[in-house]
C-alpha cells in the first residue's frame, strides 16, 4: 500500500487478491452459516482462517467499525472486506453474496406467513442452535484474545469492555466513547510505529 511508511506494521497483503465471485461466495457462506447469531465467529473462520484475506488485527478493527456504524453488522463487514480489495464493485459483490439467498428465503417465508398464515415452528430448532452460537462467539474471543493473556493493559481494557457491556449494560457506542480514548493514548505512547501489544 502506497501510504505505508513502516512496512512491518502495514496491513499485510494476502498472497492473492480475491476475485469478485470469490468475495460473493465467501459472504454467501458466512451469511448462511451464521444464523442464530455468531457473525464474528463465521466471519473470522472464513475471512481470516480459510481465505487469509485479513489478519487478526485488521479483522478486529473491521469488526469494530462494522458494529459501531449504523446498519446490520454483517452487511457493514461485507462492505469493508469487499471495498478493501475492489472498491465499490467489491462491496457490491460481497453484499449481494451476503443478501441474495437469505432474501429469497425470507420472500418464501413472507409468502407462507401472510398468504397462508403458517408460521414455521422454528423456535425450538433455534434454541438448540443458540447453544452453538454462544460457543462460536466465546471461542472467537479466546482465539483473538489469547495473545493478550500476559499483557496486563490489554487484559484490563478487555475486562472493562466486557463488564461495561454485560454488567453495566452500556450500549456499544458508550463503551467505545469511554474506553476508546484512554486505550488509544496508551497505544500511542507505547510505540506508535510498532505492531503488537497496546
Amino acid at each position: 500500500m502506497s501510504l505505508c511508511m513502516t512496512p512491518p506494521s502495514c496491513m499485510s497483503e494476502p498472497a492473492t487478491k480475491p476475485r469478485l465471485l470469490e468475495l460473493a461466495l465467501a459472504f454467501n457462506k458466512i451469511s448462511l452459516a451464521s444464523f442464530g447469531g455468531g457473525l464474528s465467529a463465521w466471519a473470522r473462520r472464513v475471512i481470516v482462517e480459510e481465505k487469509k484475506w485479513l489478519d487478526d488485527e485488521e479483522f478486529l478493527s473491521a469488526l469494530t467499525l462494522s458494529r459501531v456504524l449504523p446498519g446490520a453488522n454483517q452487511m457493514n463487514f461485507a462492505v469493508y472486506v469487499g471495498s478493501r480489495f475492489h472498491g465499490f464493485e467489491g462491496a457490491l459483490a460481497a453484499v449481494l453474496g451476503l443478501i441474495t439467498i437469505p432474501f429469497l428465503i425470507i420472500l418464501a417465508l413472507a409468502y407462507a406467513y401472510f398468504l397462508h398464515s403458517t408460521a414455521p415452528a422454528m423456535q425450538d430448532v433455534l434454541r438448540g442452535v443458540t447453544a452453538v452460537a454462544i460457543a462460536l462467539a466465546l471461542s472467537v474471543g479466546l482465539k483473538t484474545g489469547e495473545k493478550f493473556l500476559f499483557n496486563p493493559t490489554a487484559l484490563l481494557f478487555g475486562a472493562l469492555a466486557f463488564a461495561a457491556s454485560v454488567f453495566v449494560k452500556l450500549p456499544l457506542i458508550a463503551v467505545l466513547a469511554i474506553l476508546g480514548p484512554p486505550a488509544f493514548l496508551v497505544a500511542w505512547r507505547h510505540d506508535p510505529g510498532k505492531k503488537g501489544d497496546p
Binding site: 469494530t64 474471543g141 466486557f162 497496546p198
Partner: peptide, 19 residues
C-alpha cells in the same frame, strides 16, 4: 496503528460480551 492496537482488546472484550 494506535487506534487498531488500542481498540483490539476492547473488541475482544465485546466479543466475549456478545457470547
Amino acid at each position: 496503528l494506535a487506534l487498531e492496537h488500542g481498540l483490539a482488546p476492547i473488541a475482544v472484550g465485546l466479543i466475549f460480551a456478545s457470547g
